[in-house]
Amino acid sequence: MKKLFLLIIALSVSAITEAAKYCSIDGFSNSELRLASYQRSQAATSFNISCDTSYSILFNSQNLISPDGMSYVSNGPYKLRTKLNLSGANSGLWGVRLKQNPTQRQKYIVSVQLVDNPYNGVPAGHYQDQISVDIDF
């Protein structure tokens, strides 16, 4: 049985020290997105951000191919294409820093769908990608 999963590891928050700017991140529903070993399998996670000041947010993937969320999971020599989706940000673009207004609680949802069929000549193994979310305020 083939197992695929997408790993969410990195979350970077940076702030320029000014008068009491505040941002918090909470409510992560999953730290890993595990895909089943069949085409079009899906996984998702969500989290919340609250900021009393404007902030910018950048969603990225180690294996990102395009700003519309095309990416892939890999075990090294073999790759399977995935489609990353984003809701909660203004435009849903990947690899593009987005400016956001202050908010009491903004929910972001990141989901992934396996595009390729893992049974078409791809060996069993541990396939992964890494998603990062970078927040500057």
Rank of each mutant, 00 (worst) to 15 (best):
L4I: 15
L4W: 01
L4M: 10
F5P: 00
F5Y: 12
F5G: 05
L6M: 09
L7G: 05
L7S: 06
I8N: 10
L11A: 08
S12R: 02
S12T: 10
V13K: 09
V13A: 13
V13W: 00
V13N: 05
S14L: 09
S14N: 13
S14H: 10
S14M: 14
A15L: 12
T17G: 14
T17H: 12
T17K: 09
E18G: 12
A19P: 07
A19H: 01
A20C: 04
K21M: 08
Y22S: 13
Y22K: 12
C23W: 11
C23T: 13
C23L: 14
G27L: 06
G27F: 01
G27T: 11
F28P: 09
F28S: 07
S29V: 10
S29D: 04
S29Y: 08
S29R: 10
E32Y: 04
E32T: 14
L33E: 00
R34Q: 02
R34G: 05
L35Q: 00
Q39G: 03
Q39K: 14
S41P: 08
S41M: 05
A43F: 07
A44S: 15
T45N: 05
T45L: 15
S46I: 03
S46Y: 11
N48H: 13
N48M: 01
N48T: 10
I49H: 06
T53Y: 12
Y55W: 11
I57Q: 07
I57R: 02
L58I: 06
L58T: 06
N60Q: 01
N60T: 09
S61M: 00
S61A: 15
S61T: 04
Q62M: 09
Q62L: 09
Q62S: 09
N63K: 03
L64C: 02
S66L: 02
D68W: 02
D68N: 12
G69A: 06
G69M: 05
M70F: 05
S71R: 03
S71W: 02
Y72H: 14
S74I: 06
S74C: 03
P77Q: 07
Y78W: 13
K79T: 12
R81F: 06
T82I: 05
K83S: 13
N85A: 08
N85M: 10
L86I: 13
A89I: 09
A89W: 09
N90R: 11
S91P: 01
G92L: 00
G92R: 04
G95D: 04
V96S: 00
V96K: 04
L98G: 00
Q100I: 04
Q100E: 15
P102A: 14
R105Y: 01
R105S: 15
Q106A: 15
K107W: 04
Y108S: 05
Y108F: 15
I109Q: 13
V110E: 00
S111T: 04
V112R: 01
D116T: 12
N117R: 11
P118Q: 14
Y119D: 15
Y119A: 12
Y119R: 14
N120S: 13
P123F: 06
P123G: 08
G125A: 13
H126K: 08
Y127G: 03
Y127C: 03
Q128W: 01
Q128P: 00
D129H: 08
D129S: 08
D129I: 07
I131F: 03
I131N: 06
S132P: 04
S132E: 09
V133H: 09
D134N: 12
D134Q: 09
D134H: 07
I135T: 04
D136Q: 13
